[in-house]
């Protein structure tokens, strides 16, 4: 039982760790697709934007 609990706990900790790493690497579309010739505005929480 201890081994099972330890394995589940490790899985949760590892998943949270991966989430934090990936979120720190990931760029929002407004940053990733902005170039020197085109600026993409922040769409906010809605992909369509505030309008």
């Amino acid at each position: 039982m201890k081994v099972f609990v330890a394995a589940v706990a490790f899985a949760v900790v590892a998943a949270v760790g991966v989430a934090m790493v990936l979120n720190s690497i990931q760029e929002p579309s407004s940053v990733a697709f902005t170039t020197s010739g085109a600026r993409v505005s922040d769409p906010g929480h809605n992909l369509i934007g505030s309008g």
Partner: peptide, 14 residues
């Protein structure tokens, strides 16, 4: 052994 079971349950629970 304990480590083998740990890896089994890690993979299985995921």
């Amino acid at each position: 052994a304990g480590f083998e079971r740990f890896i089994h349950w890690l993979t299985a629970s995921c």
